[in-house]
Design a protein around this nucleic acid. Structure first.
Length: 428
RNA sequence: GGCCCCAUCGUCUAGCCUGGUCUAGGACGUCUGCUUCUCAGGCAGAAAACACCGGUUCAAAUCCGGUUGGGGCUACCA
């Protein structure tokens, strides 16, 4: 029976790298019908926080990384103490003040790593290991070994930063007479420049990506591609497909730089393929929060979502694009007013406004007809009127088709924004 | 510094184990063209890599050694 675990410590938010470690563990378990254990390593009483504990569980669930068994180490201190006593009584460990320390025997240790193959380390590099700290709490390695052994973890899949812990821990397995599990050390995620992943290089916590409007399915898809490939030139990979092709031996050995661009692309792909009603349900509360006074008919809202779906990289982009629909006043993008509304087109705008005001219905088709007729009457190019009008209506030089835009804005607001467009300029 | 891990386009990767099918494939990004009221999108193209040196071999991205470069660890943190 395959049994794996993800063992974060609640001393910070779930890190994007931690999420990937969790994902590979989860996939390894699911691909083989095994068990995925979530174990919270909260032995550091000072640094562990309830808020982080809650957040980690929340992020795991959000990503869909559900667990079959749950433990936390603070519930298991008695157990660690028992093993410390045992090692003490067997003479394998000794006391240093209140601390319990393992005698490290000199010998070469062989690690068989599923990803890297054999790694040999001489224990002369390793000094005696503290098992129980003076305050009575176990050290990371000690608690980890006891738990992995007792929870019958068949393969320890963790970050490469733990390679040097592995020989120390093997010594502990042997001292306590436990069976040594298999190991697989995942390459680390690097920042976009290939250096150490740090806060400065961008978001590191899963929650940040969540608030920035990334879909969990896109994050999971992106993360699995960091160091692994389904092997058939696929980029957008369904979990079912990934599980079918998953093999831990196919995981890369080299660290992988995190690319926000590719995550964004994947996110946009998932947004595009999502049904508009579903996307609308996701967006609705975000709109309500950002624009409290907004109220739009369900049908209309869904239509707006449909209109902007193709141009969103993140959910947040929608809020940016559509501010002109939910705010009283148009907010102009940097420089667009100067570029498209510097020439006074009051006459043209008023003519268009008058004609639009008379329209009996206000649809994409009818607004286009009115617009084309106006352009013909004015004897100007379509473009010379389209761009200033779009800017006047939306505050942006770019966006969906102008007639789509007018139709969702509605007759009343379209007409009034056209009429008010040059009022400021008159006072200049 | 010491110990350990790693090295294919700018980035993520396929290929490496089982050398020849690789004038190295895909994707993101970049650039170009088409579509169009704009941008985005979509579609079609382009540029872009086996870190270096040596060895083994008829033949090396693939095997071996070294160099260089990057990363990790070096806590009574996890």
């Amino acid at each position: 029976m395959v049994r794996v675990r993800f063992a974060p410590s609640p001393t910070g938010f779930l890190h994007i790298g931690g999420a990937r470690t969790a994902l590979f563990n989860w996939m390894y378990a699911k691909a083989q019908g095994g068990v995925f254990v979530l174990r919270i390593e909260d032995t550091d009483k000072v640094r562990s926080k309830q808020e982080y504990f809650d957040e980690i569980l929340d992020s795991m669930k959000w990503l869909g990384l559900t667990w079959d068994e749950f433990y936390k180490q603070s519930d298991r201190f008695d157990l660690y103490r028992q093993y410390a006593h045992k090692l003490l009584s067997e003479g394998k460990a000794y006391k240093d003040g209140e601390a319990v320390v393992l005698h490290v025997i000199q010998k070469p240790i062989k690690i068989y790593d599923l990803i890297r193959g054999e790694i040999v380390v001489d224990t002369k590099e390793i000094k005696d290991q503290v098992l129980m700290k003076s305050d009575g709490s176990p050290t990371y390695s000690f608690a980890c070994v006891i738990d992995d052994a007792l929870m019958e973890i068949s393969c320890v899949i963790r970050g490469e930063d733990h390679i040097s812990n592995t020989p120390k821990q093997i010594l502990m397995y042997e001292a306590m007479g436990f069976k040594v599990p298999k190991f697989a050390h995942l390459p680390l995620i690097m920042d976009p420049e290939g250096g150490r992943m740090s806060k400065r290089a961008g978001a590191t916590a899963v929650t940040e990506y969540r608030t920035q409007g990334y879909l969990p399915i896109a994050i999971v898809n992106y993360l699995m591609l960091l160091g692994w490939s389904p092997g058939n030139n696929q980029e957008k990979v369904s979990m079912a497909q990934a599980l079918k092709n998953f093999s831990i031996k196919k995981i890369n050995k080299a660290g992988a730089a995190f690319s926000l661009e590719k995550l964004q692309w994947l996110n946009s792909q998932y947004i595009k393929e999502m049904p508009s009603d579903e996307l609308a349900r996701l967006l609705k509360p975000m709109v309500a929060e950002k624009y409290p006074q907004s109220n739009m008919e369900e049908q209309d809202f869904e239509h707006v979502v449909h209109l902007y779906k193709g141009r969103m990289n993140t959910l947040l982009d929608f809020l940016e694009w559509t501010s002109f629909l939910f705010e009283q006043n148009v907010r102009f993008d940097e420089g667009v007013k100067e570029k498209h509304l510097s020439q006074n087109m009051k006459t043209e705008f008023n003519l268009l406004a008058d004609k639009l005001a008379e329209a009996r219905e206000f649809t994409v088709k009818s607004t286009e007809e009115v617009f084309r007729a106006t352009v013909a009457e004015l004897k100007v190019d379509t473009g010379t009127l389209v761009h200033p009008v779009r800017v006047a209506l939306t505050g942006k030089a770019v966006g969906p088709g102008l007639f789509d835009t007018m139709a969702v804005l509605g007759q009343k607001r379209t007409v009034s924004r056209l009429r008010e467009a040059f009022i400021d300029n008159y006072n200049d």
